[in-house]
């Protein structure tokens, strides 16, 4: 069984270097699909094992002038875009090459992934991959898993950012989904949870068609709540110092 898993990982690696395969199936999300419905049907997908680094993003900026600091249109990235780099095409001491790239907007992250023939993961895909700890694909029932994540939240951001990949891989072979940086997802702008979580279940009907703002299930899953809050707090052109991203891909047709 272990050997089979290892082989599957290697196979996925060969198909797309740097990507791990996450299985599809039914997944209970903290963000309901519709009020009262938490089960999401996920297709299998590939997820980058590590967040995108400063070095990788620099290479992208070199090949895509439109996404360089100073040239990127204001509607796609705010004034904080890559502010920690010493120059539009130079990292400098404030941005080590192997650190996850931060201060990038959703538009920029999307453009990077597109340039790799990839895309951003959806929230559900990210949540699925992040539910794992080192040995279990779904560790969310374990209070110790939740507490570890909360412990990271309680340390201030003034500490230096470590390089990617230093923490152990989780059960899917993916690193750093927790404890390093927040990460963009494709539908970050439409998580549709109210910023004031106390008003859950009290939708303003004229504002939201359909069933009103989604309410978050499993309110004790604070790790998720905080991530949703973080992603909802920024517009798509927004950047902030602990928010990076990684890319996802659909498996090649015919791959296992």
């Amino acid at each position: 069984m272990v050997l089979g898993c290892a082989l599957a990982r290697v196979a996925a690696g060969a198909e797309a270097p740097g990507y791990a395969r996450v299985a599809g199936g039914s997944f209970a999300s903290s963000l309901p699909v519709a009020p009262g419905r938490n089960e999401v049907a996920l297709e299998p997908f590939l997820l980058q094992r590590r967040p995108v680094t400063n070095a990788e993003f620099l290479a992208f900026a070199q090949g895509h002038p439109k996404w360089r600091r100073g040239e990127v249109p204001g509607v796609f990235a705010d004034a904080g875009y890559l502010a920690h780099w010493s120059a539009p095409l130079a990292l400098g001491p404030g941005a080590r090459p192997e650190e996850p790239v931060t201060r990038v907007s959703w538009f920029a992250a999307r453009a990077y992934c597109e340039a790799q023939g990839a895309r951003l993961p959806t929230w559900y895909e990210w949540e699925r991959a992040a539910a794992a700890d080192e040995t279990r694909s779904d560790a969310r029932g374990d209070p110790a898993w939740r507490q570890r994540i909360l412990d990271w939240y309680s340390r201030p951001s003034s500490e230096a950012l470590p390089d990617v990949g230093l923490s152990p891989a989780n059960a899917w072979g993916v690193h750093d989904l927790h404890g390093l940086v927040w990460e963009w997802v494709e539908d970050a702008g439409s998580l549709l949870a109210g910023a004031d979580s106390r008003e859950q279940g009290d939708p303003d009907r004229m504002k939201f068609c359909g069933s009103g703002a989604l309410t978050l299930e499993q309110k004790e899953n604070y790790a998720v709540l905080m991530r949703v809050a973080m992603l909802s707090s920024l517009p798509a052109a927004g950047t902030t110092n602990r928010l990076g991203f990684r890319c996802a891909r659909d498996p090649e047709a015919g791959a296992p």
């Binding site: 699909v33 419905r37 549709l192 004229m206 798509a236």
Partner: peptide
């Protein structure tokens, strides 16, 4: 469409019954 919605600051989400949750 997703990029346009992001640009307009108009979040939306497709529901299983085909309706949408969207800010107008």
């Amino acid at each position: 469409l997703r990029a346009l919605a992001a640009l307009l600051g108009a979040p939306y989400r497709r529901l299983p019954d085909g309706e949408f949750n969207h800010a107008t």
